[in-house]
Nucleic acid binder design. Structure first.
Lengths: 295, 295
DNA sequence: ACCCGACCCGAAAATACCTTTCAGGGGTGA
DNA sequence: TCACCCCTGAAAGGTATTTTCGGGTCGGGT
């Protein structure tokens, strides 16, 4: 950090200092300047501290605060803290670039959070609610729901399954391609099969969906590429966002966020449609867990 | 629940209050709520004033400030002033209430996306980067990393494991409590054990962490309640945000988002520290998958 | 050149505020 | 029912802030 770049902020306080400067005595001016140049730093100081830093006395500091229109140093300090916060938050949107190797950990957190937020916004914007509604309707009425996913998408599949089970739906997640196909054969009209694949071309996931499709089940594809292979066997296609991946943030990471949002929407939708069953089921599972923790 | 209008702002402080609320006593909670609901108003009050307003004593106010992570009331008050300033400087809160049964599907998508974004922001704001850095350093140097998680947290554990494996780290996820303990016994100094539990009181997850802790491994807890049981065996605690859950959006959902962000940060951090190994490993796994899709 | 008045300024007293200690009270589990 | 623990507020104890006050300096007048 360079030494006094801070001085150029355009707060109301700085202008007040400038206006009043001519009518100030030397010592008071020193204090006022210090305060205008580094609000954040001064906010952290006590009267005594600021007096020392400016080479003056406590009395002078208080006088300065009064002159600037505050009831005392306490008031000035509060205002300073506010300024500091604003200053800091104004600096936040400097996140444009991706994550690089030498980013400090603080930046990593900020950037990741920011990117995931972007992903969520993109997904929400790009989601076809008509398709989603259809998928929800089908899932809410289904005898059973099978979900296929492999690798990172496999976890999303399990997440969906866990939640559907919680609200009394019968759901299964399959990561094993063979078992998936074996189970898909059991499906028939009125059942629902959901395939989750970011690329849309994961053979191991497409295959069971194809089987389910041919057996007459309602099929749903959650994918980032709406024109990919998987969609040809899908009655409803839910599109996840394909945000750019950087070297340190592989595709799996952003696609997962996106997939989870879609899956959550699906879940909440189903819960709404089957509220009479879902609500007590949720309560029951909540209590069961609470009991477990208590013991 | 009271129906204060102001209470819906999404500051880091509000989320911290929510996070810690369960572990708070009545009086402290009263103070915390007052502070979260009206930062600006409280910033203008002295300890005595705030004590009177909340019908408690000065001691309690100071205790609350400490609990929220400030050195004393002075610190809290400064932070409050900052918040107040930020709040005032043009912020359109767009108060979205929770999701209700009769929301159309379009609203569900929008609200879910918004809430998850909030969760991300809160998590990022509340994450202790020093703790995170320490955890990263330990994980980057570890001989092996074991991750414990059950239920929804189990999926997060698997997610972390998958990613660490991708960059050449040796990692295992355990959802089976018995196997987890059995494996924990194998750990020793230089190894890392990570427990993921939202409530912080999941016995099946605490137990293996305790074992790992006693065997001399570096232990990390990822939890929403930083004062909970799990932290007593944790060298480093990473706090996830506890956003309010609604009936249709159970805790598992928001905690998952939060946990995943933390896990991602951990992953990226480790990838940075071990860049020479991580980068080629990522490329290799990417190509292996591309090849698989092509066929 | 000297004196006088006005005004700045900082040391120290006075006060307000914050923090800590301590003992009573209420709830909980045995 | 009893004992225990932990929360809680009253009051003592410490800082931080404010006020007071007297020394010092400077400019103008004699």
């Amino acid at each position: 950090m360079t030494q006094d770049v801070k001085g150029t902020f355009g707060g109301a306080l700085a202008s007040k200092v400038r206006t009043l400067a001519p009518s100030m005595t030397r010592s008071v001016q020193r204090v006022a300047e210090a305060v205008a140049n580094d609000p954040a730093g001064c906010a952290a100081l006590t009267v005594t501290g600021l007096a020392e830093r400016t080479g003056t006395s406590e009395a002078t500091v208080v006088r300065t605060a009064r002159l600037l229109g505050y009831p005392g140093y306490r008031g000035l300090r509060l205002a300073l803290a506010g300024l500091a916060a604003q200053q800091q938050s104004g600096r936040a949107p400097t996140i444009t670039t991706g994550i690089s190797v030498d980013d400090p950990i603080t930046d990593v957190v900020a950037k990741l959070a920011y990117e995931e937020q972007q992903t969520l916004a993109d997904t929400a914007a790009g989601l076809d609610t008509a398709q989603l509604g259809a998928a929800v309707t089908a899932a809410a009425a289904a005898r059973r729901v099978d979900v296929y996913g492999i690798g990172a998408s496999g976890l999303v599949a399990q997440d969906l399954t866990q939640k559907l089970l919680r609200i009394g739906r019968i759901a299964h997640a399959h990561s094993d391609p063979h078992l998936a196909v074996t189970n898909a054969v059991q499906l028939r009209s009125g059942d629902v099969a959901i395939a989750i694949t970011h690329s849309g071309s994961t053979g191991d996931v497409i295959e069971p969906l194809r089987v389910a499709f041919e057996r007459g089940a309602t099929t749903v594809a959650i994918t980032g590429l709406p024109n990919s292979a998987v969609t040809q066997y899908a009655d409803h296609v839910l599109t996840t966002s394909t945000s750019r991946e950087t070297e340190l943030r592989p595709a799996a990471m952003s696609s997962r966020t996106s997939q989870l949002l879609v899956v959550d929407c699906l879940f909440v939708g189903v819960a709404q449609r089957t509220y009479d069953i879902a609500a007590p089921a949720l309560t029951a599972s909540y209590e069961a867990l609470a009991h477990r923790h208590r013991k």
